[in-house]
């Protein structure tokens, strides 16, 4: 899959703010195709995992009510510049992607 994640991690004092944008349709399964009237099947991210230097820091469990092309941000403590931050997601159709960045 083409790169679907844009991620940035910035340290400020003890806190590191991680911001990420994921490109994903996040279909709820309730919307209908306006031309054919058929339901568009549900297609949404269920789980986003963020690892700091290989240790899981945050696991986000999402339902279909998270907006299309989701944005998420959170803070972790104890990270230093140069540490690796890995973000990965899995959707309800089994598709997945991941991206790694370093703390600035």
């Amino acid at each position: 899959m083409a790169k679907s994640i844009r991620i940035r991690a910035k340290a400020k004092g003890d806190d590191t703010t991680v911001k990420a944008l994921i490109t994903h349709p996040m279909e709820t399964g309730l919307r209908k195709n306006k031309k054919t009237g058929e339901k568009i099947p549900a297609h949404f991210i269920q789980e986003v995992t963020c690892k700091h230097n290989g240790n899981t820091a945050v696991t986000a469990l999402w339902g279909p009510a998270v907006s299309k092309n989701p944005y998420l941000s959170f803070r972790i403590g104890g990270a230093k510049a140069g540490d690796s931050i890995e973000l990965s997601w899995v959707d309800n159709q089994g598709k997945k992607d991941s991206a790694t960045t370093t703390v600035k």
Binding site: H52, A60, S67, S73, I76
Partner: peptide, 11 residues
């Protein structure tokens, strides 16, 4: 290690 802060966008 995570702090009590999350931000996202919902429907």
């Amino acid at each position: 290690s995570a702090k009590g802060f999350v931000s996202t966008r919902i429907k």
